[in-house]
Design a protein around this nucleic acid. Structure first.
Lengths: 249, 249
DNA sequence: CGGATTCTTGACCGGGATCAATACTTGTGG
DNA sequence: CCACAAGTATTGATCCCGGTCAAGAATCCG
C-alpha cells in the first residue's frame, strides 16, 4: 500500500506537459524538444486548490512559481495600511509568483476564485536547469518582461479610462484570453464577483453593475448574473476609442 | 587628430563604473569584484541627451538597456488610439528598456526631461557575458522582478487613491528616491511639469496645481513653481493613511 | 428550505474634470 | 538686452461621473 502510493506519487511528477494543451502558454520561448523534456522534469507536482483557498500569501518565502492548468485565480496587493486591490486575474497557462524573485518573498497574495489545478515549479530546480541550458533563463526573462508590459497596460487602463471604457476593455481582454485558450470569445461565465471586478478596475461594485446594465441596454452584451454574452465586440471597442478620442483634443 | 579621437573614444568605454556613485543602484545584485570588472567592460559608451530628446521610441528594435547617470527622464506608454500616459519618472541608477525584451522592441518611449547622461548597455554583449557568469542573469532577473513590483505599487496608487493621496505619495516617493541618491529629501526641484505629474498620477494638471496649493496652505509643503520644500513629511503620510483608513470601513 | 452572499437599482452628494481668464517663466530673435 | 511669444502655473465657476447610502431582489450553498 505504502509502496504503491510512493510509486504513484513518483509517477505523477513525470507529468504530461507534452500533452498539456497549455504548453505553448507555459513556455512560449522554449522551442526545442530536449528543453521540453527538461522542463517537464522539474515540474515536481500539481496541486489542487478549492474556491477561496490561498496559493501563497504576500510576505511568505518565495519557493516556487505556479502555472495555472485549470481554473481562475486572483492576485491581490495589500498596502501598508491594509487596503487590498486585485492586480490581475489569472487563467490557464499564466504563471504566478514572478514578483517573488526580487526579495525572495512573495509580494502578492494569490487566491483561487474556483477550484483550480496548478503546476508547481520549484525555483531552485529551475535554476539548476538554467545553469545547464541558458535558454531556460532567456525564457524566464522574456516571461518577466511580458509581465512588465502587462503591468503598463493596467496602468494605462487605470490612469486614463473612465468607468465604461474600463469595463469594455475588461470584457474584451477576457474575451481575447478565453479565445486564446480555445473557449468561446462571445459567451462565458465570470468567475469573479462585481466587487472583485471593481477592485481590479478601480471602481465600486455598484458602478460595475450599473455599467454592465447599461451595456445590456445598448445591446452590446447580454448579461444575467455571471453569464456573459458579447453581442457587439466592435461596439465595445468603440466605447473605448470614442472617449479617448475626445480626450485628444 | 582622427587618431586622437579614436583613442579617446576607445578609452571612454573602459569607463569608471568603479568610481560611479550609482554603482550599487545599477547592479545591486552583482557583489563580486570580478563581476564588476566584467560589467564595466560591456558598458560600451555613454550618451548625452538634451531636454526633450528621445532616447528610444516605442516600436523601435530593442538593442540596449540604458542606465541613468545624471538627469531625469520619463517613460511614456501610447495606447492604440494615440493616447499617451507617463508610466514612470527615472533618475540616476534607474535602468530603462526592460520592457523591450519580450518582443525585441521597445514598448515605451523614453524622453529626457532635462539634459541627461546615460550609460548604454548593449543587450547582445550582456548576453555574451551572461553565458559565462550566470550571476549576471540572476541580477537581470532580480531587476526585472523589481520592476514588476514597482508596477504593482503604481497600480495600487492609481486604483485606490484620491487626488490628494496620490500627490502626497508622489512627493514622498520623490523625496525618498532623492535621499537614496544623496540629495536633500526636503528640498528639491521638480523636473517635470504639472501636466506630466498629472499624466503619471491619472489627474488633470489643474487638479495637481490645486492640491499642491492646498498642501501649501496646510503647511505640509512650500512650493514656488518647480521648487519644493517639504515641511511636514509625517503630515503627508497622514494624508495617505487617513483616507485609506476611511475606505476600510 | 432558509440564511448569507451577491446583484440591481434608486436618490443624493462630492471630488475632480472642464472651461476660462489671468499671471508667471522661459526662451528667442531683433 | 529688451520685447514679445510660447509655454507653464494658478485660481475661479460650473458640471458631471462615479462614490455613497440604502432598499430590495436574485442566487448560491449548506
Amino acid at each position: 500500500m505504502t509502496h504503491k502510493e510512493t510509486l504513484s506519487s513518483r509517477a505523477e511528477p513525470l507529468s504530461q506537459c507534452g500533452s498539456c494543451k497549455f504548453r505553448p502558454l507555459c513556455f512560449p520561448h522554449s522551442t526545442t524538444q530536449a528543453l521540453f523534456k527538461q522542463m517537464e522534469s522539474i515540474l515536481a507536482e500539481r496541486k489542487r486548490f478549492s474556491r477561496g483557498q490561498t496559493v501563497f500569501r504576500a510576505g511568505e518565502p518565495f519557493t516556487s512559481f505556479y502555472t495555472v492548468r485549470t481554473g481562475v485565480l486572483k492576485s491581490v496587493i495589500t498596502s501598508e495600511d491594509g487596503f487590498e486591490q486585485i492586480t490581475r486575474f489569472h487563467m490557464s497557462g499564466d504563471i504566478l509568483g514572478l514578483d517573488g524573485l526580487y526579495k525572495d518573498r512573495y509580494t502578492l497574495t494569490a487566491i483561487a476564485l474556483e477550484d483550480c489545478e496548478l503546476c508547481v515549479m520549484p525555483y531552485d530546480k529551475l535554476m539548476e536547469l538554467a545553469a545547464k541550458s541558458p535558454s531556460v533563463l532567456i525564457g524566464l526573462i522574456k516571461t518577466l518582461s511580458n509581465e512588465i508590459m502587462r503591468g503598463h497596460e493596467t496602468v494605462l487602463l487605470l490612469g486614463s479610462m473612465h468607468a465604461n471604457e474600463r469595463l469594455a476593455a475588461f470584457l474584451l481582454d477576457l474575451s481575447k484570453r478565453l479565445e486564446e485558450r480555445g473557449y468561446s470569445r462571445t459567451e462565458f461565465i465570470l468567475r469573479m464577483t462585481r466587487a472583485e471586478i471593481g477592485s481590479f478596475l478601480g471602481l465600486k461594485l455598484e458602478t460595475v453593475s450599473r455599467v454592465l446594465s447599461k451595456f445590456a441596454e445598448m445591446k452590446l452584451i447580454e448579461i444575467h448574473q455571471k453569464h456573459v454574452h458579447i453581442l457587439d465586440p466592435e461596439g465595445l471597442h468603440t466605447v473605448i476609442k470614442e472617449h479617448h478620442a475626445a480626450k485628444q483634443l
